[in-house]
Structures are given as C-alpha cells and as structure tokens.
C-alpha cells in the first residue's frame, strides 16, 4: 500500500515539475522579464500550505497525547515536526530567492515574510525542546505537547501582529493558461502526499526505535 502511494506521489511530482518547466512556464511581468524566478511559485505555495498543515497535525497529535497518553501520538508529533521543518525551510528559502530577484533584499520586514520566519523558528525550537529535555519519555512527550499547543496559538497571533508592518508581498496570483493551473494543483496534491508519506515513514522509524529501546 505504502509503496503504491509513494509511486503515485513521485509520478505526480515529476509530472507537475515537467508541466511547470515546459507548458506551464510563467512569463509574467517581472523586474527582469527574462528571469525564470516567478516559476518558484510552484514550490513556494505548496510548501507554505504543507508547513501550516503540519502545524495543524502537530496540534491534533498534542491534544491526542494529552487526552490519551498513548505514545503513538508522540511519534506522529515528532515526525510531523521534522517534516514541517523541511517544508518551512523550503518556504523560506524559495521566498528569499524570489525576494532577492524581484525586490532586491534577501529579506525584509513584511507580514508574510515575518510569519514564515516565525513559523520556521517555532518548528526549530520545538525540535530543540524535544532533543534537550531530560527525564522520562512520558514527561518529554507531555511537555512537547504543551509547547505544541502554545505554539499553535501563536500562529494566528503572528499573522495578525505582522499586519502592523507594510506589505510588499504578492497579494494574489492569477494563471494565464490551464497548463499553469494544472501544474500548480498537481504540485499542490503531490507535495501534500509527499508530506503525508514522509510523516508515515518517519513515524514507523520512531516506533521501531522506541520498541528497540524498550527491549
């Protein structure tokens, strides 16, 4: 089952990449009309949605662990945080490349840029907390669940507070042809599937590791 899903994910990823690089190529208005930098949207937007989705999953697992005390929730939480960090890193890296090419600076204080940076920091701090807490596994899992809930409450606060800064971010994006739309939505589905597969695999690895430690 997992192998089939992984195969479908890879096929969708390759297909969306091919569409994005050929018929779905974006040639819209840009600081440099010859620059292909606008095509970064195909990686940037799905990463943004995946990193936020991972945070929501992290909240669900945190509540699940605090409500039941079942260790499986903690394994899913650990896996989700690592995968979320990967997507948050891709989100910030692609955003910085776009910013440099279109606006000049690598980073500037703008609502969505601040929000993405804080999202990345929240993932990093969560993972540092996981790795540096002494004591029993149960205490670590409980404390990490508490931090995940507090961090999730922080996300809407970040989005609201960042509105106090001037926005230079692209307000919205429109596609010129169905190929672009197809490449975008296929990329979105394949990235979501990839995130789910990575969480699934990492959770299994953590479960096996935990079982080996217990024996």
């Amino acid at each position: 089952m997992r192998k089939i899903l992984l195969f479908i994910t890879l096929v969708l990823l390759l297909a969306s990449t091919w569409m994005a690089l050929t018929k779905g190529r974006i040639e819209g208005p840009s600081a440099n009309p010859c620059s292909p930098v606008r095509n970064i949207i195909y990686a940037h937007v799905p990463s943004s949605i995946c990193s936020l989705a991972c945070f929501t999953v992290l909240l669900v697992t945190a509540i699940g662990y605090l409500a039941t005390g079942n260790e499986s929730w903690d394994h899913v939480a650990a896996a989700t945080a690592e995968v979320g960090l990967i997507f948050a890193t891709v989100l910030n890296a692609t955003g910085m490349i776009f910013s440099r090419a279109e606006w000049g600076p690598w980073w500037t204080a703008s609502p969505r840029l601040i929000s993405s940076a804080i999202l990345w920091f929240l993932y990093v701090v969560y993972l540092i907390l996981r790795s540096s807490l002494p004591g029993s596994k149960q205490r670590r899992a409980r404390v990490c669940a508490v931090f995940a809930i507090i961090a999730f409450l922080d996300v809407p606060m970040v989005y609201i507070s960042a509105r106090y800064m001037q926005d230079i971010h692209q307000p919205s994006f429109t596609f010129d042809n169905p190929w672009q739309r197809g490449a975008f939505f296929m990329g979105m589905v394949s990235t979501m599937l990839l995130a789910a597969m990575l969480i699934w695999i990492k959770t299994d690895v953590l479960k096996i590791k935990s079982r080996l430690e217990a024996e």
Binding site: I114, I118, F121, L122, V125, I128, L129, S132, L133, P134, G135, R139, V143, V146, F147, I150, A151, D154, M157, V158, I160, S161, A162, Y164, M165
Partner: peptide, 29 residues
C-alpha cells in the same frame, strides 16, 4: 509556564530564552 517545563534541564537558562522569545515574537511588533 516554560520555567516549569525547563526546570529539570541542564541548559535551563538557554532553553527558557528560546522558548519564551519565539512565542513572544508576535507580541513584540
């Protein structure tokens, strides 16, 4: 809250700083 969380940790001060500062970031704007 985070002071209670990091109480058993050896790097208590460092851990508390990053936990508190990351959550307070939106409030600082």
């Amino acid at each position: 809250l985070f002071s209670a969380i990091v109480q058993l940790s050896r790097a208590r001060g460092a851990l508390l700083s990053i936990l508190v500062l990351v959550i307070l970031m939106p409030m600082m704007i």
